[in-house]
Design a protein around this nucleic acid. Structure first.
Lengths: 129, 129
DNA sequence: CAACTTGTTATATAATTGCTATAACAGTTA
DNA sequence: TAACTGTTATAGCAATTATATAACAAGTTG
């Protein structure tokens, strides 16, 4: 899977990597048990510092997406506490939804958007990359 | 409406204010045409600097929630370009939804969460504060 | 064994961001 | 005039982000 960073983005580089890897898992391009590149390999590949990649991997570990192993590097291992995941999600989308309500977006429109994004994940094709 | 800031939060103070005001509008506690407190009043009230409040108001103006006027201060004025609002929302919830998909959350569960939050906004009672 | 790779840890430095502090200015209101 | 608005400018401090070097222990490979 292709990983890139945008140096002109106002989003932190380690967060860009984190997000791309999460998208990779959600779209099935990265599967449970897969190994991610080593921190040094990925750092050289995207032309950033080793520690920045390491921070991305550390965040992914704390969030229950990978396990870090001295032998195999970062291995995708999904740890799921559904109740906690839903609680986190509520926090993350609450402000976005409040904004939408203020601007007159109805719940049907949000449902449609949610379905659109779900379909995007489910029907991901390598040709889209 | 009561506004507070949490100095121990890792969220920027001006963003805390911005979010609370957006929630206030979404729940109907603040209505179109209402004036927000002056930057100096609110700054003193929550014990932060004037410029931090000013930044919160500036963000709200850029996002189309208020208009800043030298006479009446910050006045709630909702400017809505639905297409743009939905585009922004997609960006804001995409990562959260990718996380949910990774952790095995189905779209029905997300719909339920969306409805819950919508109900929270619609049925807001002053007694909840 | 030796060479190499893994994550991990430790420093140090520079740039940016968030927040504060003070001060002043122009326009509005009473 | 006096008191209030938002706005602008400057300065300083702390935390975050990203970088650069360097070293270490543990596992893998030739």
């Amino acid at each position: 899977m292709v990983l890139r960073v945008d140096f002109n983005s106002d989003e932190a580089l380690y967060m860009q990597l984190r997000n791309q890897i999460i998208f990779g898992i959600a779209t099935g391009r990265i599967r449970e048990g897969d190994s991610l590149p080593s921190v040094r390999q990925l750092a050289e590949y995207v032309s950033i510092n080793m520690h920045t990649v390491n921070k991305a991997y550390s965040v992914l570990r704390e969030e229950g997406f990978v396990k870090l192993d001295r032998r195999r590097g970062a291995v995708v291992a999904l740890e799921s506490d559904k109740k906690r995941v839903l609680e986190e999600m509520r926090e993350e989308i609450a402000v976005a939804m409040a904004k939408a309500v203020c601007k007159g977006i109805g719940r049907e429109e949000v449902h449609r958007l949610v379905d659109e994004i779900y379909d995007l994940f489910a029907n991901w094709e390598e040709s889209m990359e």
